[in-house]
Amino acid sequence: MFWDYVFRFLQGMGVTIELSFCSILLALLAGILLAVMRICPSSPLRFFSWCYVEAMRATPVLALLIMVVWGLPKLGLMYSEFASSVLALGLYTAAWVSEAIRAGVASVPTGQVEAARSLGMSFGGILYTIVIPQAIRTVIPSLSGIAIVHIKTTSIAAVAGVLEITATSQIINVESAQWLWFLGAAVSYLILTVPTGWFFKAIEQRMVFVR
């Protein structure tokens, strides 16, 4: 019986890892796109990006998740709860990623941009070769923080019925009447978040540069 619980618990951990990985990837891509839109010359795109970020800041992530999970079937798009959760969590964290990257863009010295412009580089060229690489390196610590918070936020997918660590520990707790499983769940989040911090630290050290 005990080993059955352990097996299901490890399965839940696997689901949390998949969920976090997919949604962080989505959040990074969408976040970079939003950050670029926010600083581009076209004012409607800037306005759209601003609206998106502020709307996400003003929405509780659980309300967003519920709307996506219940709403997508109403649109006739029948995905699994897992896919809906990835979408909702990824779109939510994208707003925070874009804010972080924007802060990184502001940290690039204006002289570099002016030098690039005086060489006749285009907006896209400046962003791609000069601004974004430096901006991302500068904000790796805050991206690390966002990723760690994000891994913990994936626990709300339990409400949508995805059997990740939190949902599994809740079910096992009911079946076995043993609340120690919750402590196990807390420890397994540590097992996931601490190496994430190490991972980003390693990237930071590898990408370190002197300005």
Binding site: M37, I39, C40, P41, S42, F48, V105
Partner: peptide, 30 residues
């Protein structure tokens, strides 16, 4: 919003046209 305007030249006639095209395309997509 204007704090990053250092990133690009003040658009000339062609640039304004381009920006308008991007804006229309992006806006239409959204």
């Amino acid at each position: 919003m204007s704090e990053n305007s250092l990133l690009y030249e003040r658009p000339g006639p062609v640039g304004l046209l381009k920006n308008r095209v991007y804006a229309v395309a992006g806006g239409a997509f959204v």
